[in-house]
Design a protein around this nucleic acid. Structure first.
Lengths: 260, 260
DNA sequence: CCCGTCGTTCCATTATGTGCAACTGGGATT
DNA sequence: AATCCCAGTTGCACATAATGGAACGACGGG
């Protein structure tokens, strides 16, 4: 299935950073013969996997793929419920919220709820981030055992942002705390000036898990508001957990769930 | 490129309504040999185009596609600006908003801003709807000439909802009004109890156009609020049009842009 | 325990995609 | 206006790579 592999490779060239590509761009990046790239992309256009921008020679992912990413969201009731819960919290506090999933050592946002505040974090759907260096990633990693996490990082932790975990042991220590408290925090990690709160919830039936997360400017959000956001996320997660039969980590009593 | 065509056909089997498929499902739907479907789907899994749910045999679109649909959104500054504008209006009024694009006779929502009201229209990203029977579709069709629209419907209009246009001439009449007024309305068309306001804006440089749209429960939103929504959408569209150099249809003076 | 269903694997056939190189067409340069 | 140059497309012979029929494991239910 070389054509499929090549087609996927072409699709991989697209990302949030690089949204338009020409035939030679692709041929260069994948160092494949121009002829090949040309024919493949033509076929992909005809299949709806790619489309040209205007009438020019620049390409972008096709409409078909858009339809399908919607199917992905609908494929999992967990994601839908998560989106619903995050939307409620986001509407209440005005900050941007996400639902994210973990794949190996990376997290991806699958749904967003753009905030309504003038100063808010711009949403960045579909960008992969290192799990260990984000609140969503750690919230999801905390659902795994220490042994499983160690197995994910056989060569230790890659270098991360200043406030992120500095070593595998540091990470495991943070995960223990997340398991005990039931939520994850990030203070100016992936993005300067941005703090985040995340809560994970899963579906034992499918083995899936998602993280609900709200991000906000670190400087302008005080303890009371943070506590409100946390309460909203925990409440949403608890509702979902009740429906799926998931075990919620952390203190059983809501009032013990406080930010440090 | 038969494998590509087949792969695309498999992807097309997924939709908002049908989010999970097994090998035999696919083999049946596309009546292709089971062997073929099995191998193809295996290859697609390895390429990241598909993934199994949990450890089972049900498949859904892969993570890769999710990343890419993000790229699609970023590919067009027009879509980004539209999303921004709709998010503002949506946050202000609490109703759900969309950015949609037109392909032939169908419109697809590419971005959504879920509303914050308890009673709101649930967003339905990525589902294709007939252009003539939606406010977004008509707003976009109105950017084309009567001749072009006629060419789109050589055999007349397909049957639509009760409040939708009943004939091609009816549609053209509505489009004329949209061109004159600068916005499109739908009253309980695609969905019972739901009204919608849509405004189209384009980028002459690329030939693209998007529709900004807000949907709301027909019964509980009064004239004043509708007017406010309309003003918000028109304002957003005007800002975008100013940046792209697009011509905004309808009365030049804002205060003439009123709902009937 | 056996059967039905579902997915995967085997194998020969042939279609299919590959790579090289020549061709075209559109824009800039002078 | 003539020319160059680069991006993209096409022809052709060769060999890889996908096809489909049927047989084989693997579950799960009756």
């Amino acid at each position: 299935m070389t054509v499929l592999a090549n087609a996927a490779a072409i699709l991989r060239c697209f990302s949030s950073e690089c949204a338009e590509l020409t035939v030679t761009d692709v041929a260069l990046r994948l160092d494949m013969p121009k002829a090949n790239a040309s024919r493949l992309m033509k076929a992909m256009r005809e299949a709806g996997l790619l489309e040209t921008i205007g009438a020019g020679k620049r390409h972008r992912p096709g409409r078909l793929l858009l339809d399908i990413s919607a199917a992905f969201r609908h494929s999992s009731p967990l994601i839908l419920m998560g989106a619903e819960a995050v939307a409620r919290v986001s509407a209440a506090c005005g900050h941007t919220g996400y639902v994210s999933v973990l794949t190996g050592r990376e997290v991806t946002a699958v749904t967003d709820a753009p905030g309504s505040n003038t100063l808010r974090v711009v949403s960045n759907l579909g960008r992969r981030l290192p799990a260990h260096a984000t609140s969503t990633g750690r919230a999801l990693l905390a659902r795994q055992s220490d042994a499983e996490v160690r197995r994910l990082y056989p060569t230790g932790l890659p270098a991360g942002p200043a406030n992120g975990p500095r070593s595998l042991d540091d990470l495991l220590e943070r995960l223990r705390r997340i398991r005990a408290e039931g939520f994850a925090l990030a203070h100016e990690e992936a993005t300067a000036g941005v703090d985040a709160v995340a809560v994970a919830v899963g579906d034992p039936a499918t083995g899936e898990a998602v993280a609900l997360c709200v991000v906000f400017p670190a400087a302008v959000v005080g303890p009371a508001e943070r506590q409100a956001i946390l309460r909203g996320l925990l409440g949403g997660a608890a509702e979902i957990a009740a429906r799926t039969g998931d075990a919620v980590p952390g203190p059983a009593r809501q009032d013990e769930r406080k930010l440090a």
